[in-house]
């Protein structure tokens, strides 16, 4: 089927998920002394990978090549090691608390952006009656929204302390 709009959104959401996955890993490295953030961020990065992999079969159908890169977007070894080491060194200071809130806000915005793209893709899938794509979009969009909700909830929990007691 030639639906250039669908192709465009497919590519965008694919990139958006890759971007979010990378950023989740980066945040996990940077805030390794904030253990819950670190561990949940890594679990959520896997959801972005799953979302990307779920889209792959539709690439051909809509004339694109999303399938090129279905590997986990884990951060490169050296950079990651540097980030982890510096995270441990600054774990005793308070300034990273504010950095954490900024990072979580960035993640929230990325996830929210992806969520809008999933909405668009879902609407299009419904219109062209592509039930397979609609099913995948529904499943993926749910994961994306839960990523965004987690970012927002974590910001809510940490803000009172990090903004008033540091």
């Amino acid at each position: 089927m030639t639906a250039p709009g669908i192709r465009l959104v497919l590519r965008e959401v694919h990139e958006g998920e890759q971007d979010l996955e990378k950023q989740l890993h980066a945040v996990a490295d940077r805030h390794r002394t904030d253990h819950e953030v670190r561990h949940v961020a890594i679990d959520l990065a896997r959801w972005s990978l799953l979302n990307r992999q779920a889209l792959a079969p539709f690439a051909g159908r809509y004339g694109d090549e999303l399938g090129r890169d279905q590997h986990p977007a884990v951060p490169s070894g050296v950079l990651s090691a540097v980030r982890e080491r510096s995270a441990e060194l600054v774990g005793r200071r308070s300034a990273p608390g504010l950095l954490l809130l900024r990072d979580l806000r960035e993640l929230y915005l990325l996830a929210s952006g992806n969520s809008v793209l999933w909405t668009m893709l879902g609407q299009a899938a419904q219109t062209v009656k592509d039930k397979d794509l609609l099913g995948v979009v529904t499943e993926c969009h749910d994961r994306t929204m839960r990523q965004a909700v987690w970012c927002n909830a974590t910001i809510k929990v940490l803000s009172p302390q990090l903004l008033t007691s540091l």
Binding site: D34, E36, S94
Partner: peptide
Amino acid sequence: PHATPPTHTMQIFRYAEQGS
């Protein structure tokens, strides 16, 4: 205080680690 859930132990120790 009820803006957030009551703080749990692991987070209390984290806040102590971080100096808040």
